[in-house]
Design a protein around this nucleic acid. Structure first.
Lengths: 337, 337
DNA sequence: CCAAAAGATGCAATCGATTGCAGCATTGTT
DNA sequence: AACAATGCTGCAATCGATTGCATCTTTTGG
């Protein structure tokens, strides 16, 4: 394995001092070097295939141009777009991201956090939804830079970037009311997620405002199976089942589809369903799902923007950026019977 | 922002030399230090909350414990499980991964590759499907360690970990033949992907073996829209359309669903469809999709294993690991009319 | 009881790039 | 012509951990 080309090799070829090479190669310090020298150095660098060693640079500058991204689970379809949104902002600015999955385990989260600290990441983007642990508080107190995405900061003064979930729920309820539905049921996600509560509260408020009968059923997790189980329970318990379901997310809505089908009911003729997230393939299910689209890519990009701002300007404002969501009306909602 | 705790701080508290701290903290060198000293150092480290700076370590040892993972697009549902499989092997061994997306652009791939080289990653896992560029060749020649996953190494002597696609296609064809289908059509993915060709060739071979009429239609990309377009063309062109479709992947199969529906045909009564990948939600489409399941998580884990082996034992064997796939029979295939 | 071996720790160079400061050369000013 | 200002480059310390070697202490064996 051939030894790597270093700044010293370039300096030798270009006939200058390593320090000069460093200045010539760097956009910010380039102006301190004679223009002729810059081209000479650049040519030597190209000729040797020199790539600055960012480890060495990182040691000296104590900045690694790396961001840690903490998410629950990459195979949950909302996270890939968030991650890509993050990268789309970071990449052009010379930053890389290291993505880790906690599988919603506090222990794992803490150890992954430490491992990223050890790697000297310049900051964190945190998307793990559950609150109630002290990690972020401690991080804040020890001067770590971070921003929350798709979750509330839960009292810790980090910036947070979230979708306007409440508005999405309002729009769903309004849409359903317009179709003549009078009794709505909401399938609420796990209460450990701040988004679950926001959505449930908005649901109750919206129904109250529009004079609709509101029922809320809690689900233990955001999954297809749990949605199916919840809907099964509703169908097998209630004498007059609701004519419309507002699901906490698309996975739960999908579970509702399955339950309906298993009970010989059709959507939207018997029951209208609206999901939340507009996850990939939401339009490909049968019926194509009416759902609220959150701008996940933008959420990611925006969180990256806030983080870099925090890093480069050394100020952290506990701002809360709320991005608009959009109700996508497809075929799973129709007039009430 | 409080200054970070360094090895020197620990040394001072423990009353020893920094070098001793280094040895005491490291599992491999711990035996060189007196047991009492080790506990004293460890206690001092814990007390100060010392985390070794892996940048500094990396500079000295020229190993960053970081792996670069190059994929086309994280939002393509087959990649999250691969990435998680990789991490599941890497994480417990102290490695992290940096995932980058090329969006199938050669230019992007090259620049991302260089940026990862600059970050001194210890090796690469490459999943970008298209061959025909020289990047991996050059990488090999300059001693870079890598393994290919879900694609062939295309002549470059890197190890490759792939699913047994040919077998999956054989199983599909066999299944369809068993249901009485005599004329099969294969929707082939873009020919720049090695997997496309493997699958198409297996399809032709299997049909020949079983005395079935085989047609192959090329698709410009692996997408729902392209699958729909291809099936539309078939339905609107051929006098007697095929009774069964073997799609190059699930996305194409989903497009076939849409086309069928648009033409008033039902699956599987009019046309049977089998997909490839068993992507998330394949069972949730209507009808639930018969498809070939590739062990993506295992593919990822196995590629990580081979890479670490290559790194730690400094040997690269151009082996080709082929993991078994499984035909998952659901509701999109039925007896021929 | 002394020499040799083994054990434990300190010392200092090293990894590769960055950067404040010093020094030299050139240009400009009066 | 003398001096200041400016521009350019070299020098060397620095970031934090690792590690071969030297040194010192303790144990072992004859």
């Amino acid at each position: 394995m051939p030894r790597r080309v270093t700044i010293g090799d370039v300096a030798k070829i270009a006939g200058v001092h390593p320090g000069t090479v460093s200045r010539a190669m760097n956009a910010k310090t380039e102006s301190q070097v004679n223009a002729d020298t810059v081209v000479r150095v650049r040519m030597a660098a190209k000729q040797l295939g020199y790539l600055p060693n960012s480890i060495a640079r990182g040691l000296r500058t104590s900045s690694t141009m790396t961001i840690g991204v903490i998410i629950p689970d990459l195979t949950n379809p909302i996270f890939p777009p968030i991650v890509r949104g993050i990268d789309s902002y970071l990449g052009p600015r010379g930053y890389s991201s290291v993505v880790v999955n906690t599988d919603s385990s506090d222990v794992a989260e803490r150890s992954l956090f430490e491992s990223l600290m050890q790697r000297q990441v310049d900051g964190f983007i945190v998307a793990t939804g559950h609150s109630g642990h002290s990690l972020m508080r401690e991080a804040y107190d020890s001067g770590v830079r971070a921003v929350m995405v798709n979750r509330d900061s839960g009292g810790v003064p980090y910036p947070a970037v979230v979708g306007d979930d409440a508005h999405g729920i309002w729009a769903s309820v309004e849409h359903l009311a317009g179709l003549g539905h009078r009794a709505l049921t909401h399938l609420e996600g796990p209460s450990s997620f701040s988004t679950s509560r926001v959505r449930a509260e908005a649901f109750v408020a919206a129904c109250a405002e529009m004079n609709l009968e509101a029922t809320v059923i809690g689900c233990a997790e955001y999954s297809v199976d749990e949605g199916q189980r919840a809907m099964d329970a509703i169908l097998e318990t209630q004498r007059t089942p609701p004519t419309a379901i507002v699901a906490g997310n698309d996975l739960l809505a999908l579970g509702v589809y399955h339950s309906l089908r298993a009970h010989g009911l059709t959507c939207p003729d018997d029951v209208s369903v609206v999901g939340f997230n507009d996850m990939p393939f939401a339009r490909d299910f049968q019926p194509a799902m009416t759902t609220v689209r959150s701008p996940y890519t933008e959420l990611g990009a925006e969180s990256a923007r806030l983080l870099l701002k925090q890093i480069e300007e050394s100020v952290s404002i506990a701002m809360r950026v709320m991005l608009p969501v959009e109700l996508i009306i497809r075929d799973s909602t129709g007039p009430a019977r």
